[in-house]
Every structure is written in structure tokens, then in C-alpha cells.
Design a binder for these strands. Structure first.
Length: 460
DNA sequence: CGAGGAGCGA
DNA sequence: ACGTCGCTCCTCGA
């Protein structure tokens, strides 16, 4: 009897896989179901073309990307199984230690995986004052535990226990189970039609949320290794969303900021704090947050939590950001008024999104809709950019008959499994393919490239 | 089996 | 009153 993974790989290499995804795509984006015939497929394409002169390009993109993804899945990624299980054993030891310490502190055994039981221990037995509520009672999430960790050792221990348990169950056990018995590699599923954003998602297992902080997470990431004799090369877009914002808005100052090859956050910091100021690391940190969060239409109140400053000060920073980059402001205003009229927004490549509550009487609903409308063209254009890049890369590779493989995609990052002697030809093709997807007003996309002997190593 | 809390990534 | 989009784990009660 064939195993799950055999079926999975076979499926990806067969037409049925293509058929399945077209069907899902047709349902979701065209509102029709496909009977499997090529005649109907053609007619669906025609109908879609008529429905929206622009939708066709996205449709083409998705169709062409399908076999590219199927190949990535079938090739998979190699894993250092011994190292992974060694880390796993050390993590389990560490978990046991924390467990015992926690029990010793409260003179009682309980299930530390149960938020409900933690709640009882902390707030009823130890009488710690609760800070945050959720649907079922008092929250015991990270934010809460961190706030009391200084005064109560148990909170810190629970935090450590939790992150270790997460690593063990999700990243050690689940990844180990996902290793294919024959290929010894992990073959994820990329879901092409699952997200509302046009991004890919990854499941069985999800390889788009492998942790990378120092310590055990770094070690886990270093278990992802290239094929025998190969190296890993990681190419990731640098500040892709901010660059897309510069292109779409056409703001001269933001464009200049990127053309100057100066650190973008330091530059924004100078506008926020004054030209003659010496920019401290704290100022740069704030500027970085502002650059990052403005894309999401953040308010001063929320930003203040992020940067740990007063709401008034935070509101002022946002105001200065828009003063500094005025066309970003007018771009957003234009975008919103357009969306209110038509009911939708679209990406640079014409991917559409209908927004429901833009004219709602409820101010909260309206704000949510507005943030969604502001963010969508930026983040989603970035998703489209990546898809076009992947297509270009695969086309170029096939034309030149090369042996390296594109094996993973993590939204703004691509991972390649490359024979050492092909590094040069790889570099030429991939950098160009990725950077030439989009360039407007003299701004281009920028790609950072790092090589290494494993995934962690190659993140630079 | 599903909802809810929690935590990992971009 | 306030970030968006994902996936997976665990518990707990129907």
C-alpha cells in the first residue's frame, strides 16, 4: 500500500494536480466550477477575460506558476535527521527541568500546557493580580506573563517551558514525522489558492514559519541542509514593501531615499527628529518602526505601544512621516476615495480585492476596512512580485539547462540548492530575475544574497 | 470533533 | 479600539 508521501509526490508530478488547482482557482476567483474539459477551460478563460480586462494577467501568472510549485514540492528539502533528533533530546531535558522547578515552586503538579490551569495557579492560588481579560477569563499569554515575570519567578519559568514545548512538538516532532522515508527529504505543500492576499501558504509541514531566534531555534533551522556536494543560497528582497510604496506613490523624497543607497531608517529618523540631530540607535529604532507600521495604516495609540512612547508623541511621528513623504499621503487618500466609489482596490498587477465596510456607519468597522484597503496594494503587490520572479527564475533555469533547484519560498525569500560550480551562473540569473520584475520612477527592487552550508548559515 | 488560547513566521 | 495574512499545537467540553 502506497504511503501518504508517495501519493503526494506522484500527485504533484501528474496532471491531476494541475487539474485540481485549476478547479480550485476557477471556483474561487471566477465563481464557476470546472468539469475538467479543455473546452470549458478555454471558455472560462474567455469569460474571465471579459469580466475584467486586467484579471487575465493574474490568471496567467497563477497557471504558469503551478508547475513551478509542483516541482519545488517534489524536490523537497534535505534534513539532517541526526542533528534534529539530538536537539530534540536536549530540548526535552530542558523541558523536564523547567517542569520540576515549576512544581517545586507551587508544591503541586498541574498541566502547564493548559492555560486554564495556569490561570488557577497564578490568580487563585498565588493571588497574583490579573491584568488582561479574554473570552473565557483572565489571559495568561506571553504579554501577561512577561509583565509579572520580574516579581514572580514562576511566570518566567512558564514562559520558558512554553517556548521549549512549542519547539519540541511543532518543530522537532512534526518535522521529523514529515521526513519522507524514501527521499529522506521534507516535501511541503504550497497552497496557491488558499489565501485572500495572493500570497502562498505552506502546510504539511508549514516551512514558512520555521523559527530563527538565537539558541535552539537557530539550531533547528541549521538542520535544513543542501544536497550532497551543494550549497544553500538564500535570496531575499530587501524592504520590498517600502520600495513598492515608493514606486506606487511616486513620492520623490522616498524614492530619493532609496536611490541614495543610504540606510532608509536613519534617513527617516533625520526627518522625524530634525536634520541637525545626531541619530542615536533609539531614534533609528523608532524610525524603523514608523517606516514599517505606516504601511499598515497604524494609529498613534497603537504605535505608542510598539515603540514605548506616549500616544501624543507617536501621533506626531506619524504626522511627520507623511509631511516628509507627502505623496504617500495623497496616494493613500486617492486610493481610499477610489475604493469607496468602486468597492475594491487592486495591486499593481491588477489583482483585485473587494472591501466591504468602507462606507459603513460604524467608525470601527470603517477604520478596519480603511487599513485593509491601504495595506492591500502594498503587501499584495509584493506577493505578486515574488511570483513573477519565481516564474522568471524557473524559465531562465530551464532554458540554460542548469542543475540547481529552487526549493523553498518564504514570502520575500527564496532558498536554492546549488552545486558549487554553478554559483556564478546562478547569481547572474537570479539577481536579474528578481530585481527586474518591477521598477518605477527610477527605484528598483533590491535583493540580498547569502550562501551557506545550511539554512541558518545562509540567512546572513 | 470543534472552539478557543497560544505561539511561530512574513 | 486598533495589524494583516497564514499553520499547528494543546486543552477542554459537547
Amino acid at each position: 500500500m502506497p504511503k501518504y508521501h508517495d501519493i503526494k509526490i506522484a500527485r504533484h508530478l501528474s496532471d491531476s494536480r494541475i487539474k485540481w488547482d485549476f478547479s480550485a482557482y476557477a471556483e474561487k476567483h471566477l465563481g464557476y466550477s470546472w468539469d475538467g474539459s479543455s473546452e470549458q477551460k478555454l471558455s472560462l478563460l474567455m469569460q474571465y477575460h471579459e469580466k475584467s480586462e486586467s484579471g487575465d494577467s493574474i490568471f496567467q501568472l497563477e497557471m504558469e506558476l503551478l508547475p513551478v510549485l509542483a516541482e519545488m514540492e517534489a524536490i523537497g528539502v534535505r534534513i539532517d535527521r541526526e542533528k534534529l533528533s539530538d536537539i530534540g533530546e536536549r530540548i526535552i531535558e530542558a523541558i523536564k527541568l523547567r517542569e520540576q522547578e515549576i512544581y517545586d515552586l507551587v508544591w503541586e503538579r498541574f498541566n502547564i500546557n493548559s492555560p486554564k490551569q495556569i490561570q488557577t495557579i497564578l490568580f487563585e492560588k498565588l493571588h497574583i493580580p490579573p491584568t488582561k481579560k479574554n473570552k473565557t477569563g483572565y489571559s495568561v499569554d506571553n504579554e501577561v506573563l512577561e509583565s509579572i515575570a520580574e516579581n514572580y519567578a514562576i511566570a518566567g519559568l512558564i514562559l520558558e517551558y512554553r517556548s521549549l514545548a512549542k519547539l519540541s512538538s511543532t518543530y522537532i516532532e512534526w518535522l521529523t514525522k514529515a521526513i519522507h522515508p524514501q527521499t529522506k527529504r521534507i516535501h511541503t505543500d504550497y497552497n496557491q489558492t488558499g489565501t485572500t492576499t495572493g500570497r502562498l501558504s505552506s502546510e504539511n509541514p508549514n516551512l514558512q514559519n520555521i523559527p530563527s531566534s538565537p539558541g535552539y531555534p537557530e539550531e533547528i533551522k541549521s538542520c535544513f541542509i543542501p544536497s550532497e556536494g551543494n550549497i544553500f543560497i538564500v535570496a531575499d528582497y530587501s524592504q520590498v514593501e517600502l520600495r513598492v510604496l515608493a514606486m506606487l506613490s511616486g513620492d520623490e523624497n522616498l524614492i530619493e531615499a532609496f536611490r541614495a543607497w543610504e540606510d532608509i531608517h536613519t534617513r527617516t529618523a533625520r526627518y522625524l527628529f530634525g536634520k541637525d540631530q545626531t541619530i542615536t540607535s533609539d531614534m533609528r529604532r523608532i524610525a524603523k518602526s514608523v517606516n514599517f507600521w505606516v504601511i499598515y495604516g497604524i494609529t498613534g495609540f497603537w504605535l505608542s505601544k510598539m515603540i514605548k512612547k506616549s500616544p501624543a508623541e507617536s501621533t506626531e511621528y506619524i504626522k511627520r512621516f507623511f509631511d516628509t513623504y507627502p505623496k504617500v499621503d495623497s496616494y493613500y487618500q486617492h486610493l481610499l476615495s477610489n475604493a469607496r466609489e468602486t468597492g475594491y482596490v487592486e495591486t499593481y498587477f491588477w489583482r483585485k480585492r473587494y472591501i466591504k465596510w468602507l462606507n459603513d456607519a460604524n467608525k470601527t468597522m470603517r477604520s478596519i476596512a480603511e487599513r485593509e484597503a491601504m495595506n492591500m496594494p502594498i503587501q499584495w503587490t509584493a506577493a505578486d512580485v515574488m511570483k513573477y520572479a519565481m516564474l522568471a527564475i524557473q524559465k531562465g533555469k530551464n532554458e540554460k539547462n542548469l542543475n540547481w533547484n529552487m526549493i523553498l519560498q518564504v514570502h520575500d525569500e527564496l532558498v536554492f540548492d546549488v552545486p558549487k560550480h554553478e554559483e556564478e551562473t546562478w547569481l547572474e540569473l537570479v539577481r536579474e530575475s528578481m530585481e527586474w520584475v518591477l521598477g518605477l520612477h527610477g527605484v528598483s527592487l533590491k535583493v540580498d544574497i547569502h550562501t551557506g552550508k545550511n539554512w541558518h548559515d545562509a540567512k546572513g
